[in-house]
Structure formats: structure tokens, C-alpha cells
Simulated assay, not measured.
Amino acid sequence: MHFQQTQQAFIAHIKDPEQPLPAGIEERRMAVYRELFFSNVQSFVSTALPVLQSLYDETAWQQLIRKFFRAYPCSSPYFLHIARHFVDFLQQDYQLQPHDPVFMRELAHYEWAELYLATTLQTGEETAVRAEQIGTSTLQLSQLSMLLAYPYAVHQISTDYQPAQAGEMQYYLLYRNTADDVKFVLVNQQTAALLQILQQAPGSTLAQLVQQMQILMPTFNTAQLQQGASSILQDFARKGVVVSFQAEQNSLP
């Protein structure tokens, strides 16, 4: 029990230096551990979210990371997982301060999504679908793609462009191409709706997608929706974002 108490005291002090030192451990040694752990976490988050980090001075950024380090129970030591934990912390537990950008949560999520797609391992091979097969194939979105929406143009944010308030919703399709580069496409609301339907119902045909789109957009006739959806899906098929449906990849274990 003594060891467990010492271990808990060690962890508590590492996360929050205002907590008492563990019994029997000198300050000089604890200072080394404090600096090592905190510096690693700060480096991981800064590397994952370089744009967000660039919007803070060094002191303010360290204070933000310290709040995360002290309060959030990370369950994984991996670089990518720590970045995701930080994004979750901002979305679930952190109260924006007057000096924080109003878009910090959205920007952090967008930067994490780019990192996730750049580093995620694909499970199984995906079968490409040719543009001319769109009308006759069962389809799905590539594993290496994400459909996102934010009320800020997060791809434009920098030290020189920082919107002061939310605006029109921006729809993004992020994907990793055959050269393993992460790209994004800004899409309109109708295209985002089409892709979301496909995301939620992998294995759909063009006709089935159009049928669902007709419910959402009753002012368009079937021929108009068919033509528009076909053109969009053909374009994304060329990019490798829309692929042939793989039943084994979408089955429950």
C-alpha cells in the first residue's frame, strides 16, 4: 500500500507541481521528472497543432498545455492519442478565456484530422472504381477520407487571418491520396449531404443515393439529381475518395 500511495503522490505532483512532493524524494530529482513529462506532452501537442500553437505567445501556450496536463486523464502515451486527448479536452472540459481564439476548438479538430489521416493505417486493400462504373457499382467512401464541417474557414486561419465570429458553415472533404499526401476539398452543402449519405450507408448505388437526395431536396427532379450526383461521384472516384464497396470491411466482427 505504501508503494501505491507513493506512486499516486508522484503522479499527482508531476501533473500539478503545487501538490506536495512524494515522501522521500528530493526536489531536484522531481524537477527533472516534472520538466521531462511536461515538455514531452507540450512537444506532442505543439507538433500536432502548429497553427493553433502559432496564435499564442509562449507563456499563454504553456499555461494552456499545463491546464490540459493537470486536468485531463490521458489513457495512452502515443503521440497521436495525446493530440486527440487534447482536442477532446478543449471540446469537453475547457472554458474559453478572453484571450483564446473563438475558433480554437474547430481549428484544433481540423489540424488533428489532418494528422490522423496522415498517420492512420489502412485496414485492407480498397478497390478503385472507374468513373464510368459509378452508375452500376455499389460504393463507399475510402477509409482515408473524412467529411467535416465548421462555422469557420479553418484552412485559412493563420496569424494574419483570425475571424472574430462564426460565419457560414464550411464543408470539407479531407482525404489521403496515392502519394500519401493529405488534401482537402471545399464542398457545398448539397455535396456534403450526398457524401454523408454514402458515409452512413456504404454499399449504396447511385440510384439509391439519388433517392435519398430527393427526400432532402424535393425542389430538384430525379434527372437533375442523377446528373449532379453522378458528376460529383465520378470526380471523387478519380481522386480515390469514392471506391468500390467492400462488404468484408463493413461487416461487424
Rank of each mutant, 00 (worst) to 15 (best):
H2F: 11
I11D: 03
A12M: 06
A12R: 12
A12G: 04
I14M: 13
I14Q: 11
E18Y: 00
P20K: 08
L21R: 07
R28K: 15
R28F: 11
R29Y: 14
M30H: 11
M30N: 07
E35Y: 07
Q42G: 03
V45S: 02
S46I: 11
P50F: 12
V51I: 14
V51G: 05
L52P: 03
A60V: 08
A60Y: 08
W61H: 09
W61S: 09
W61R: 12
I65E: 02
R70L: 10
A71G: 05
Y72G: 02
S75C: 07
P77Q: 10
P77T: 12
L80F: 04
H81D: 14
H81K: 13
R84G: 06
D88R: 13
F89W: 07
D93P: 00
Q95T: 14
L96A: 13
P98K: 02
H99E: 15
F103Y: 15
L107G: 04
H109M: 08
W112E: 08
A113V: 02
E114C: 15
L117N: 01
T123D: 13
T123G: 10
G124T: 12
E125K: 12
V129G: 05
E132D: 15
I134W: 00
T136N: 07
T138N: 03
T138R: 13
T138E: 03
S145W: 04
M146D: 14
L148N: 02
L148K: 07
Y152S: 00
A153C: 05
H155Y: 00
Q156H: 09
T159R: 15
D160E: 15
A164P: 01
Q165R: 12
G167H: 09
G167K: 09
Q170I: 15
Y171D: 10
L173S: 02
L174R: 04
Y175V: 06
N177H: 09
T178D: 08
A179C: 01
F184L: 14
Q189V: 10
T191M: 00
T191K: 01
Q196W: 03
L198C: 05
P202T: 01
A207W: 01
Q208W: 00
Q208H: 06
I215H: 14
P218V: 09
P218A: 04
N221H: 12
A229C: 15
S231R: 10
F236E: 03
A237N: 06
V241E: 05
V242C: 04
F245R: 05
Q246P: 01
A247Y: 09
E248W: 10
N250W: 15
N250F: 14
S251Y: 11
S251W: 12
P253D: 13
